[in-house]
Amino acid sequence: MTVTEKKTADQQAPAEEPKIVATNVKVSYGGRDALHGIDLEIVARKVTALIGPSGCGKTTFLRCINRMNDLIPVAEVTGSITLDGNNIYAPEVDVEVLRRHVGMVFQKPNPFPKSIYDNVAYGPRIHGLASNKQELDKIVEKSLRRAGLWDEVSDRLEAPGTGLSGGQQQRLCIARAIAIEPAVILMDEPCSALDPIATAKIEELIHELKERYTIVIVTHSMQQAARVSDYTAFFHLGDLVEKGETEALFTNPKDERTEAYISGRIG
């Protein structure tokens, strides 16, 4: 089975069916509550933006979706999150498999101190997704193309990934994430460390990526949420205040806190 032939459940599912369903998700750090019962459905092959003032729990929720919170010993997660109907917090789940299907792009570009090629090839290599060098080359090229980076780096694949500009580094990280063909890509404020031109490129990329992947993006920029997302969820002080189609939420917020936030009165 090669990567290209592999069909994820997402691609078979009807467009509006929820890919991820979170039910009553609560998180506490050493007894201090960070999220109080979040219910959210994330639609397949759409972009869902999580917005809200800093400290509202949006990143915490994002990190629940691929269980990155497991890395924090004091973090305690209750409730359920399902991916294609399978509870990701079920005891028999292996987080490595989950994370292979749910990729992540971080706030600050974090390319490994390796070559551009090795950065992208990292995931396929550890998961054994390519059986020979040609296949791996193909995966690397395809991933870099999808991340819109191929034309800029094709002649220097052996150069260190850390030598790229910030925006290029972030696209390299996106290429690295999609090289293992995840179903979902989580993005944690992916543009917060980038200049406006690099940001525009990433946003454009997100548009292209949603044809294949379900994307959840945390952003503190409402403009960005409005530009890139189909659905938006507004978090405030650990609660999910309002969710819905982005256009509706921004033009006609139902909750006064949402309205206050998008009009710039809190945040």
Binding site: A9, L83, D84, N86, I88, A90, E92, V93, D94, E96, V97, L98, R100, H101, I126, H127, G128
Partner: peptide, 20 residues
């Protein structure tokens, strides 16, 4: 998707048992 294999366990990812 195969019915009896949970898609998020090591059974679904070849080689994971050895990696563990």
């Amino acid at each position: 998707m195969t019915d009896n294999i949970h898609p998020l366990t090591r059974a679904a990812l070849p080689g994971l048992t050895q990696r563990y």
